[in-house]
């Protein structure tokens, strides 16, 4: 997964956690240790896709305006990179049998990855974060009592 896709997912999770909240690019950049310049480009793409809206002026920033239950990780990644199998073989007209065989294997892996990414919505990611937080707290309590 490319860096822009990862950043987009982090930013969307950040914003979808509280859709009423406006968050600036620099706040998200600081949290995920990335340049505001790179993140600004990512946010622009998300804005064009109708997933975030920008509010200008004092107290402005970005807020989530998509549907967290309907937006999958694959939807987001597809905004930034080609996830199809088409790009996995450089020149099909000249490909040899070993190249086709390896293409078949990488396509199989890619299909499974896409099926997984296409089934995980932003809402599911928020639930997963909650479960992880809950599990971490539980482990901390267990360690403290040991």
């Amino acid at each position: 997964m490319q860096k822009s896709s990862r950043l987009a997912i982090y930013a969307l999770i950040e914003l979808a956690t509280d859709p009423d909240r406006q968050v600036t690019v620099s706040e998200i950049g600081d949290k995920y240790r990335v340049s505001a310049h790179h993140l600004a480009k990512v946010m622009h793409t998300l804005g064009r896709a109708g997933l975030v809206r920008s509010i200008r002026g004092v107290g402005g920033g970005y807020s989530f305006c998509g549907n967290a239950k309907r937006t999958t990780l694959l939807d987001v990644i597809n905004l930034f990179e080609d996830t199809s199998n088409d790009c996995k073989l450089a020149d099909p007209s000249k490909a040899t049998m070993p190249e086709w065989a390896l293409f078949d294997v990488t396509s199989e892996i890619n299909d499974i990855a896409n099926a997984t990414l296409g089934s995980i919505t932003l809402a599911t990611m928020l639930k997963q974060i909650e479960r992880r937080r809950h599990s971490d707290k539980h482990q901390t309590r267990v360690q403290a009592s040991a």
Partner: peptide, 18 residues
């Protein structure tokens, strides 16, 4: 089925993983 996004998304949302 891989193409069955409805069920895949549901089971994922309930915490099921590979």
């Amino acid at each position: 089925a891989r193409q069955n996004q409805l069920h895949m998304a549901f089971f994922r949302s309930e915490g099921m993983v590979a």
